[in-house]
């Protein structure tokens, strides 16, 4: 089944090294652990960090789901799913409920994850302070001393300039009341899902060579001000296809005349709802497969 490749592509030494980094990351929630990131058969930015983490935790019995912007059918998601089907021979699925390992780029599935599932995030930039402080020595010191006034300065600047905190994705969080962490470029809408999530959350940044983690049931707080509290922003209407009002929506341009459609970004969630008979105002009968 995995002819010509070691199981899940990476050699055993590398996987062991990554597992050690993962254990340390779980032990210190939100803390960035360096690891020896390998060259992968795809370019940086395509999820090399996430793939190495997934490869290190995957077992023969696992069922893998891969999503990109919430969708199971984009090039990136399809490629990675096929990569592991070929090199590890594991079962794959598009259904959130059936997966044991979910690798994701830019979203958290709408369906609440369980404590027997693991979610692996692809991370382009693990350092939440990198736009504010260019020196890595200094940001490391800030993390070491939990000196996060600077991050609040950024939020202050937002409110002063725009009247509100204008971060719509990769919204910084404080993990376990200690480490400031980038949640990866998921929409701020998904941030509340990270808080006390039953599933283990792992983060891999291939180019930046960092791994970090949030153990199950850990407190994750989005930074804010008392008088400008964190708000999850979403499109102002229900999903056009399934009518959901509580899921994150993508705006789709449908024609050249300003026609547009809001649809669930989580394709599996939308399909399941339609299969269960929920039809939105733009939904087609045939959508329910």
């Amino acid at each position: 089944m995995t002819e010509g490749y070691n199981f899940a592509y990476l050699d055993e030494q590398t996987k062991r090294m990554i597992r050690r980094a993962l254990l340390k990351a779980v032990a210190i929630p939100g803390h960035q652990v360096p690891f020896g990131s390998r060259e992968m058969p795809l370019p940086y930015g395509w999820g090399t960090g996430g793939i190495q983490v997934t490869a290190s935790i995957l077992g023969h019995d696992d069922t893998l789901k891969v999503i990109d912007q919430g969708a199971d059918d984009t090039t990136n998601a399809v490629s990675i799913r096929r990569f592991f089907a070929k090199t590890a021979g594991v079962a794959t699925t598009t259904h959130t409920a059936e997966a044991t390992v979910i690798q994701t780029r830019h979203r958290i599935p709408e369906k609440t994850l369980r404590d027997d599932q693991i979610i692996v995030y692809q991370v382009p930039q693990p350092e939440p302070l990198f736009r504010l402080e260019s020196s890595r020595v200094e940001t490391r010191r800030m993390h070491g001393l939990a000196d996060y006034g600077l991050m609040h300065v950024k939020l202050y600047e937002d409110v002063a300039r725009f009247g509100q905190i204008s971060i719509s994705y990769d919204y910084p969080v404080l993990v376990n009341q200690r480490y400031l962490m980038s949640p990866s470029p998921i929409p701020a809408f998904d941030n509340p899902k990270m808080d006390r999530m039953p599933a283990l959350q792992l983060f891999g940044a291939g180019r930046e060579k960092r791994i970090y983690a949030i153990p199950p049931w850990t407190q994750v707080r989005s930074l804010d001000f008392e008088d400008h509290p964190f708000r999850a922003i979403n499109a102002p209407e229900p999903c056009g296809l399934c009518g959901a009002t509580d899921s994150y929506l993508d705006e789709v341009i449908t024609d050249d005349h300003g026609g547009r459609l809001f649809v669930c970004s989580d394709t599996d969630h939308c399909a399941e709802r339609r299969a269960a008979g929920h039809i939105g105002k733009d939904g087609f009968a045939e959508a329910a497969e």
Binding site: D147, L150, H152, V153, Y156, A160, F225, E226, D227
Partner: peptide, 27 residues
Amino acid sequence: LRMNVSAGGNVGERLMARGARNYGDIR
């Protein structure tokens, strides 16, 4: 000083580093 942060943000930083979390008060 942080040259790319507003005057108000520069003054407020030490307050926020010390734990001030009310935007109106800081400003």
